[in-house]
Amino acid sequence: MDASSAAELGELVRNWRRRRKLSQLELASRAEVSARHLSFIENGRAKPSRDLVLRLSEHLEVPVRQRNTLLVAAGYAPQYEESPLGTPRLSAVKSSIDRLLRAHEPYPALVFNVHETVVAMNDAARRLMAGASPELLTPPINLMRLALHPQGLSQYVVNKAEMRAQMLARLHRQMVNSGSEKLMKLYDEVANYPHVPGPEGNGGGGEEVLSCLIVHKHNTELRLFSTVTTFGAATDITVAELSLEMFHPADARTADALKAAAVQDMSAQMPAPIGV
């Protein structure tokens, strides 16, 4: 480990510590190392063991992709592989995703990665996205661009300002937590989209316990809330960066409209009967 690598590692550790708003003493205590040794690491004067790099990464909540960067800077081999979702190695993960997407029909569900790129979706999600600009629906689909662009889903959203604020807040959290320059550029792009605030509706006030996305689709006003699921203790970068977002009907009218849209879509896809 040469001086430049030691300095790079030290700067990386220091930047992550500051991003997590921890003092050297707090991080040292959590990682069970002396504050003096941690100070030497951050100043490029000491080389940590592989185990210590991983412990520091764990307590700093460094994403697995960036943990590899820390390991390499310290002179060690990367620990986490990155496998395409379609490879046999991830067949169990892909099967689980496909099963969850199908099971959630007729309600929308989709899977996206750390850069907000959609990697899978069910038919209900496709129906919800219908009407957006074809350019925004051309793979790879970026969820933030699709949601916030004036020609995207925002044109159907009733509570536009509320939805926009929530999406930008989510993207900002991911940007800060990951330290990704790609997300920083995405945030700058979508935050500067022109937007015209529409009627707010009631996205989460009154007797509701969850903030809802209110969107005019399927000839009615749909009220949806969502849950986001991630894979626990993932040791593959691809899996660690995946999130499954499932939209749920907030009232009976929304549930009925989504069920009816699914039936109508299925009927449209059925071949016409052969005349006798």
Score class of each variant (00 low, 15 high):
E11V: 07
L146P: 03
L9Y: 03
S95L: 12
V119D: 05
S133E: 13
L168V: 09
F112N: 10
H104S: 07
D188F: 04
E11W: 03
S211H: 10
H248N: 11
H115W: 02
S154Y: 06
M175Q: 13
A233G: 06
M144K: 05
Y187P: 07
V196C: 09
L213Y: 12
N43Y: 02
T220I: 12
M163R: 09
M129P: 00
A109H: 04
L244F: 12
L60D: 00
V118S: 10
K94I: 08
L242H: 13
L128W: 00
G201E: 10
E208L: 15
V62W: 00
L168F: 04
E162K: 06
A261T: 10
R102A: 15
I214P: 02
C212S: 08
D236W: 01
R65C: 05
E207P: 00
I237E: 08
F40D: 11
A262V: 02
L258D: 09
L222I: 07
A3C: 02
L12N: 05
A92D: 14
H248W: 11
A272P: 05
L128R: 00
P88G: 09
Q155K: 15
L85P: 05
V228G: 08
A77G: 04
G275E: 13
L110Y: 13
L71G: 05
P249A: 09
S95C: 08
S154W: 06
S243E: 14
K185W: 04
M184L: 12
L90W: 08
R18D: 11
L136Q: 05
A233D: 15
E105R: 03
E82A: 13
S5E: 14
N68H: 06
V114R: 07
G10D: 03
E32N: 09
